[in-house]
């Protein structure tokens, strides 16, 4: 009986929450707030994708900005050169990312721990340099600019932020759903076993290498979906802005601050980090340069010192959950 009641209550909450999110643009005081929400969704989506390999697998990747950039560049180039709608080219972006993930992952997963992380940094740098080098193809350091040609769903360009709000909301929901499925799948189960003890998992017949590679590719494909939406929203991309290690670190940071290897941690991380950087910028940006970013760094340090397992663990008390979510890199 109580179970049934609980269920109803739970349903009520979910419905309430979804409705709130769906109605939010109507009560949003300005385009800016809606834009911040879009950023929260997009960064939450990226961190969710990162979480698949970086959290559940504890394979800390620092080249996720690269997959994101590949998505953005693929859709931009196809649109600018061949007028192919990003809604279609998103699939091309996924395929490109998959191929690149295989190229990166194939050698990198022969390494463990820090070595894997460093290899991903090297790959990210190589791709960034090549994007800069092949100027004729990628626009080089000049970047690519998307002229506004009027609102249209096919070209993902709108006059207000509201359509982006719904699109990014859907993408985030989709990626969280995929993660949820993944968590319960054989793949997710194997990956967790490998994270606990790779050698033990191998001795049980789990092909660690293959599992990690698959999860990595999944993660890369997931993040490449976000790339085109972000790129069309901002309407300008360049290799330094979106292929940089700083962005990879930001994505990972959001996931880790929220709580790795949890379904909702990345979203929590984005909800905290994105408004935080906006607020510090708004309050301190006009004072002497550096203050807002310094505070951002300080908060990062404090979280790591006091809540290294992520802020989502604050909610564990309510649920009496086992604290097994701590990120361990072996």
């Amino acid at each position: 009986m109580t179970d049934f009641k609980e269920l109803i209550k739970k349903q009520k909450y979910s419905v309430f929450i979804v409705i709130l999110f769906l109605l939010f643009p109507l009560i949003s005081p300005s385009d800016y707030i809606t834009h911040v929400m879009v950023l929260i969704f997009l960064f939450a989506a990226m961190a969710t994708a990162w979480n698949v390999i970086g959290g559940y697998g504890a394979q800390v990747s620092w080249c996720h900005a690269t997959f994101f950039a590949i998505g953005a560049y693929t859709s931009f180039l196809l649109f600018l050169r061949f007028n192919i709608s990003p809604i279609i080219s998103i699939f091309a972006a996924m395929i490109m990312s998959f191929i690149l993930a295989m190229i990166v992952g194939y050698p990198s997963f022969r390494l463990r721990g820090v070595y894997f992380s460093l290899a991903t940094i090297a790959f990210a740098e190589i791709v960034k340099t090549l994007l800069l080098y092949f100027t004729d193809f990628t626009g080089g350091a000049n970047g690519l600019m998307l002229p506004y040609k009027g609102a249209s769903l096919m070209s993902l360009q709108f006059k207000t932020e509201i359509p982006y709000y719904y699109i990014s909301f859907v993408v985030l929901a989709l990626l969280i759903f995929v993660t949820w499925k993944f968590e319960k799948s054989k793949l997710g189960y194997f990956l967790k076993a490998i994270k606990e003890d790779e050698d033990a998992a191998e001795s049980l017949g789990i092909k660690a290498y293959k599992v990690k590679l698959t999860a990595f590719a999944l993660s890369a494909v997931m993040i490449s979906i976000v790339g085109p939406i972000y790129a069309f929203n901002i309407s300008y991309i360049d290799p330094i802005g979106i292929g940089h290690l700083d962005l990879s670190i930001k994505i990972g940071t959001i996931a880790i601050i929220g709580g790795v290897a949890t379904l909702w941690g990345p979203l929590l991380g984005a909800i905290i980090i994105i408004p935080l950087s906006e607020i510090t910028n708004a309050l301190l940006g006009s004072t002497r340069g550096g203050a807002s970013t310094a505070i951002y760094g300080l908060i990062l340090i404090l979280v790591i010192i006091f809540k290294p397992e992520g802020l989502i663990s604050l909610f564990d008390k309510f649920k009496g959950r086992k604290k097994d979510k701590k990120l361990k890199v072996r």
Binding site: P29, M37, W264, L268, F318
Partner: peptide
């Protein structure tokens, strides 16, 4: 609880 807190947080921050 987590979700409702998230909502509150979003609203507050906005």
């Amino acid at each position: 609880k987590l979700l409702s807190l998230l909502i509150v947080l979003i609203m507050l921050s906005s």
